[in-house]
Simulated assay, not measured.
Amino acid sequence: MGKSYFIAFPKQLRYTQICSQKIYQHPSSGTLIVLPGYEQQAYVRTLHLVAVRRILSENGLMDSDRFNSFLNKVAS
């Protein structure tokens, strides 16, 4: 199994919980990120980190290099 990381989403993302999933929305772009209902301070699965990186990059919210740099800081 790959590494997992805790990730704190930027404050500009709105958060909603529906059933066991959490939905984050960037209001001005309408970008949505849907994740399983991780407990607070839980580690995020690598699969979900890859999906979040792609969504942020494709919507011009954060490039992949910056996202990877952020993960490296969190992991250390």
Rank of each mutant, 00 (worst) to 15 (best):
S20E: 12
H48Y: 09
F67T: 01
Q17Y: 03
S69V: 04
M1W: 03
A51P: 00
K22I: 08
Q25A: 06
N59I: 04
R54Y: 12
R14S: 14
S29A: 09
S69F: 14
S20Q: 09
M62H: 10
E39C: 09
A51F: 06
L49D: 00
F70M: 15
T31A: 03
G60L: 02
A8S: 15
L32G: 00
A8G: 13
Q12G: 00
G37I: 10
F70C: 09
F9L: 15
G37H: 10
G2N: 08
H48R: 01
L32F: 13
S4T: 11
L13T: 01
A75E: 12
Q40I: 13
G37T: 05
Y38A: 09
Q25W: 02
Q17L: 07
L61F: 08
M62V: 09
V34L: 12
E58Y: 11
P10A: 13
A42R: 10
C19S: 07
P27M: 03
G30R: 03
Y24D: 00
H26P: 01
V34R: 12
N68M: 08
S76M: 13
L13P: 02
N59K: 11
Q40G: 04
M1E: 08
A8D: 15
S20M: 04
I33F: 05
L47E: 13
T31R: 00
L47D: 12
G37C: 07
Q41H: 15
I23T: 05
Y15V: 03
T46R: 10
R53L: 07
M1G: 10
N59L: 05
F6D: 03
A8W: 13
H48K: 01
A42D: 15
S69D: 13
M1V: 09
R66K: 09
T31W: 03
Y5H: 11
K3F: 09
Q17S: 10
M1T: 02
G2A: 12
I23K: 04
Y5P: 00
N68L: 14
Q12V: 08
S29V: 01
S64L: 06
Q12K: 10
S69H: 14
I7Q: 04
C19M: 05
P27F: 08
C19Y: 10
T31C: 04
H48V: 01
L56S: 03
R14L: 15
T16M: 09
L47C: 03
G60D: 05
I55G: 03
S20T: 07
L47N: 05
K11D: 15
Q40V: 11
A8H: 15
A51H: 06
S76I: 08
L47I: 08
I23D: 00
F6M: 04
L13M: 15
E58C: 14
R14A: 13
S76R: 15
L49R: 01
L61W: 05
F9Y: 13
N59P: 02
A75W: 07
V50T: 04
V34K: 11
G2V: 06
S64T: 14
S29D: 02
K22E: 07
A75G: 11
L49N: 00
T16A: 11
Y15T: 07
N68F: 08
S76W: 12
A51S: 13
N59S: 14
E39F: 11
P36A: 11
L35T: 14
L56G: 03
R53T: 05
E39Y: 12
K11T: 11
F70A: 11
R14I: 12
L61C: 06
G30Q: 02
N72H: 14
F6E: 04
